[in-house]
Design a protein around this nucleic acid. Sequence first.
DNA 1: CAAGAGGCCTGTTAGC
DNA 2: TGCTAACAGGCCTCTT
Length: 276
Amino acid sequence: MPELPEVENVRNGLKKLILGKIIIDTHVLWSNIIKEPSVSEFQKKMRGQKIVDIKRQGKFLLFILNDYVLISHLRMEGKYRIEKATVPLTKHTHVVFELDSDEQLRYLDVRKFGKMSLVDKDKLHLHPSIKNLGPEPTVETLKTEDLIKALKKTERPIKACLLDQKTVAGIGNIYADEILYDAYIHPERKGNSLSSDEIEKLKTSIIGIMSDAVEKGGTTIRTYSNAFGVEGNYQSYLNVYGKKDETCQRCQHKIEKIKVAQRGTHYCPHCQKIGR
DNA sequence: CAAGAGGCCTGTTAGC
DNA sequence: TGCTAACAGGCCTCTT
């Protein structure tokens, strides 16, 4: 499931291939992917737009066009592929952008969970998906004060706080588990129960894990791979996610899997204590 | 306002 | 073995 590191790698790959290309026409094969505007309006507005830049905010991919921004969220299994127009469409292709290069930018999504919105360029920062996103997880953008503010008054489990995109943008289920393991914090600890030292450690882990994952090309599990079918490497560095009943590398105790905020959650009960 | 539940989807896996 | 049911999961919408 693409989280920030995977989306960042998709962005870099797409930039190399389609920057400066013009969208001749758009075909929508599953209309629920297009959140706004209507499909016909979407097609009309896209026609003739040039792909000027590709950016990212949290897990949202932003195609910067002449007049609009295409906000694209891959959710669980969304992928982009570039193909020659003559290559037959595969089963899970839902949106096709015809480019001026005889190629097509294709959006594939097995579960059809992904969403696209086309918004006016000057209204991007007002869009509900974008305007509530918290800081990006880098040294320059994520401050201790941000975390203190987000956590000090909430009884929610820290895992739920990390998954909330208002706290930090771009963390999903895999990296939330990895971050909490790295910071020695139990996923069910209440937000307001963390000490200053723990918040400081959490910040360091958030920034460290996310940048490391970006650098290693993201995590490839199950069906996920980036725009070119290239796989990331970070799955080899996971410590707890998907490691139920395996041995903790730090203390040799067994990794456990529980449910927190309705999400599968992996942790080491010895390294990440609930009390204290 | 905060926070939890339900809905969107389909391929894979667990269980009878 | 062959079927059905549960599960996976990010975000939005609705409810409390």
